[in-house]
């Protein structure tokens, strides 16, 4: 998979938040085979040194880092946060979140496009956290986004793909744009479904971090993503309403 010209082996992208311990986080990443880890920036007090400890941990994961602008509600906040993240993590990649609604954490489409435009002009490679809206997708591509990350469901809900029609339409409208289903997945079967639908990758965090056994769940997601991708490439059969016998009818013994 190519993202902004960089080859990434795994189609599973994993967040680094909410794990019970750094050891569990590291084991979950090992078993997930994830190629990209999302990270963030937060306030630090003098002498706290939490940033240094986390930095040491993520460097040992041997993955590509994708910093986010989580929690930002305005264009200004998101742009400044992205600039701070670029310096801290030494990458121009940014998972751009501009949140517009407190309860659903739905992206603010207007702020998202504006922030994406400013950041792209400033040299960032923007991964916008967006909805399945095809018009918004068009606008994001217009301002320079080469990857889109539509939600499956609101962040942290684990509801899976809540708008199959919208996601299918988005995939069909933008066949050549890398599309990553980001947020809302709760189970490996939901990740497999996204991949079977032709999405290029999935990004998740809570489903793994909050599982009883995060490392086992990380491996389950890895297998689901791989299975879903393989199924998509294998060109699934078309569903039909009426039964069609799979065993040959001709040659059946007449016994009645």
């Amino acid at each position: 998979m190519q993202l902004y010209g960089t080859h990434i082996d795994s189609r599973l992208m994993l967040g680094t938040a909410q794990y019970p311990s750094p050891t569990v986080l590291a084991e979950a990443f090992r078993r997930s085979g994830a190629g990209i880890a999302t990270v963030s920036v937060r306030r630090e007090a003098g002498g706290e040194r939490a940033g240094a400890a986390f930095w040491d941990l993520v460097r040992r994961l041997d993955v590509t880092l994708l910093p986010n602008t989580a929690g930002c509600h305005s264009v200004r906040e998101a742009v400044t946060t992205a600039q701070m993240a670029r310096e801290l993590f030494d990458t121009s990649w940014i998972k751009l979140e501009v949140i517009g609604h407190a309860d659903t954490l739905q992206p603010d489409p207007f702020g998202l496009v504006e922030a994406a435009r400013i950041l792209t002009e400033d040299g960032f490679k923007v991964f916008p956290y967006t909805t399945e809206d095809v018009v918004l997708a068009d606008r994001l591509i217009d301002v320079g986004c080469e990857v889109l990350m539509p939600w499956g469901a609101p962040i942290g809900t684990g509801l899976g793909l809540t708008n199959i029609y919208g996601l299918r339409t988005l995939r069909a409208q933008f066949p050549k744009v890398p599309l990553v289903v980001d947020a809302g997945l709760g189970l490996p079967s939901q990740a497999a479904m996204a991949m079977e639908m032709g999405f290029d990758a999935v990004l998740l965090n809570t489903a793994v971090a909050k599982a009883g056994d995060p490392a086992a769940m990380a491996q389950a997601f890895a297998r689901a993503v791989e299975a879903g991708r393989l199924a998509h490439q294998a060109d699934p059969m078309a569903p039909r309403d009426m039964a069609a016998p799979s065993t040959p009818v001709i040659g059946r013994a007449l016994l009645s």
Binding site: T16, L25, T38, V39, S40, R43, A52, F89
Partner: peptide
């Protein structure tokens, strides 16, 4: 940016944010 900190004068009431790497989703 780091390179501009030395030349960045502060005045009373200025709002300074200091952030570090953290876990994120």
């Amino acid at each position: 940016p780091v390179a501009a900190r030395r030349q960045t004068a502060l005045a009373p009431g200025d709002r300074v944010e200091i952030v570090a790497p953290r876990q994120g989703g």
